[in-house]
Design a protein around this nucleic acid. Sequence first.
DNA 1: GATGAATGAGAGTTCATTCAT
DNA 2: GATGAATGAACTCTCATTCAT
Lengths: 195, 195, 195, 195
Amino acid sequence: MSSERQREIMAASLEIISAEGIQNLTIKNISGRIGISEPAIYRHYENKISILIAILDEFRTMSSKLFSDHSAGDTSPVEKLKNIFKGLFKAFEKNPSMVSVIFSEEVFRNEPLLRQRISEIMEHNSSVIRTLVAEGQKSGDINKTIDPGYLTIIITGSLRMLVRKWQEGDKQFNQAVEVENLFGAIASMIAVSKS
Amino acid sequence: MSSERQREIMAASLEIISAEGIQNLTIKNISGRIGISEPAIYRHYENKISILIAILDEFRTMSSKLFSDHSAGDTSPVEKLKNIFKGLFKAFEKNPSMVSVIFSEEVFRNEPLLRQRISEIMEHNSSVIRTLVAEGQKSGDINKTIDPGYLTIIITGSLRMLVRKWQEGDKQFNQAVEVENLFGAIASMIAVSKS
Amino acid sequence: MSSERQREIMAASLEIISAEGIQNLTIKNISGRIGISEPAIYRHYENKISILIAILDEFRTMSSKLFSDHSAGDTSPVEKLKNIFKGLFKAFEKNPSMVSVIFSEEVFRNEPLLRQRISEIMEHNSSVIRTLVAEGQKSGDINKTIDPGYLTIIITGSLRMLVRKWQEGDKQFNQAVEVENLFGAIASMIAVSKS
Amino acid sequence: MSSERQREIMAASLEIISAEGIQNLTIKNISGRIGISEPAIYRHYENKISILIAILDEFRTMSSKLFSDHSAGDTSPVEKLKNIFKGLFKAFEKNPSMVSVIFSEEVFRNEPLLRQRISEIMEHNSSVIRTLVAEGQKSGDINKTIDPGYLTIIITGSLRMLVRKWQEGDKQFNQAVEVENLFGAIASMIAVSKS
DNA sequence: GATGAATGAGAGTTCATTCAT
DNA sequence: GATGAATGAACTCTCATTCAT
């Protein structure tokens, strides 16, 4: 679907977002990084917003795939949640600039198309988690007394906060271990007490 | 400390951030909203960044006061956490634009002074929560098996996610109830199981 | 004639010109240096140009006094010229910012009042020198074959170049010696060869 | 090396400097004179300083060529000096705005890049003159008793003063004759007295 | 596909000066 | 005498985008 040049443009954009912040994502910077002229960009994308839409769409595809992949199989819902967590973090590690995009909602505020895309992604991911939570409560793995809606907020919020901390600390900490630990903490909290 | 005009500029800025997004926070917009000329702004603030710093500093004062107020007293640590949650939300309700500022980290990325301020606020708030968590574990109110660091991530992350949802949904939901419920969920999860 | 404040303003202006260049001579800088408000300046001078006019007028008085002082007496014309040179340099040393003013013609170009003042000063000084040269030629101290007009250009140009070099080198060299030497060179060149 | 537009911009800048003074050299004025928009300038020069640097660099090239051209050949050093004088004045006559640039040191004071360029040009020209003076003294054409350093100051200073006078008088006098005469005066002063 | 040149709109900021107090 | 507040005009520079080639 995307031409080579389009992928190049998306990659350059992500690099810029990651290295210099989304505020520095200008057509000039993108074209400069690729080594083409500014107008050349417009041969491949209608305008700047389209580039970001393309990036978000790719992120959507990736994250959607990740969520459905890991929510399938016959492991327990809790195990599935953990795998989603880990998968997501692995994806961020491979493409750290994605994090900046996801956290740039405020920047996109006046761009309905971008805003909507981000909402959709969040919504979709949330719903997968909510489903897994419900499943877990049904199967008796997750404490039934907790409202699944709030539990979803807690889980997604925790995950997001960890991502933020990772990003803030210049991506230095061993995220595999941290995810495992954070998830372990959540798991132990929501597990049915076996006394 | 702040002159009347300075407060007016801060208010106008917050209104703009809230209504049109931080991207539209321009000197022209600020001065236009107040009804003065653009250069007049510079009589009261050295530059645009200083305005944002002033706003963040006010937020810091407010939130710091809120956190220390509610972390005092002789109620249980869990109760204190709940009060902090509720107080914070009340503050946001009173000044909804503050939320936009807090979530604009990505926009401030290249402004060390702003970045630092936000970090400080977050760090301080986190540390208060961590202390309360530790207290709660010591007193036997909070489950000792959960690592206090991760628990803090979970609590702050959940809170943040709720704020985000509130903002996204155009601040329509009854946040008092939502906070109560979300916190109830967390509380039940971290409570020592009394079986 | 000048009030204390006026002198203070002139002094501050000269300090700024000397330290930061005439481009940085702003009402804000002047008032800041004195420790008064900007409008206060306008109580003492009609506008910025008036300040510079006052400075130039003072320079005119000083330099005019210096030229007439040294061109009197019963020493030889050449000796008088030397004393003028030395006196001028001594004045610059005492008030180095005057040099910047004198060399700022280009900046004053669009200010007829300033331009004229500078011209007058130069013209007057030139004419004194021309007179002394003529005297010297009459008395037989200076070679008669050289045109007094060109000789004046040579003398004033040399002096100016030395001032420039002094200024460029951050006023470090021993100007007393340099003036003496430069003038010695000129003197030997224009002296009537006594062979 | 310079594109047509770049040369056009340089020319317009020089015209402005010459006609309205360097203080009126604004991007708006430059673009207005050429008949393009202000931002268009930035396609051709990074910023305003770059334009001035380009101008100074061209002046450097021109003057350096002139100095080396005339300091070669088998005429006497004094003759060479004269030719340099005449060539320089011819260049100024062809491009009178160059004079304004050269005399704008005070304006450039806070621009290290420009300051340095001017210094380099002056330094280079001085050194060529100093060399010729030394040669002339060696060959017996110039009086050996005069220190070559001071003699260089005298020669360059005189030249500069003549340029200034020419500029001040609105470039009206016959500079060819004036240069010839001034140089004649200098030449007679430094010639070895043949008595 | 790509480029050089250009542009309208707008950004933040500075400056000399004025005016009511 | 002095000040706080304000302003019109100007300045340099950036940005997304367009168009002829």
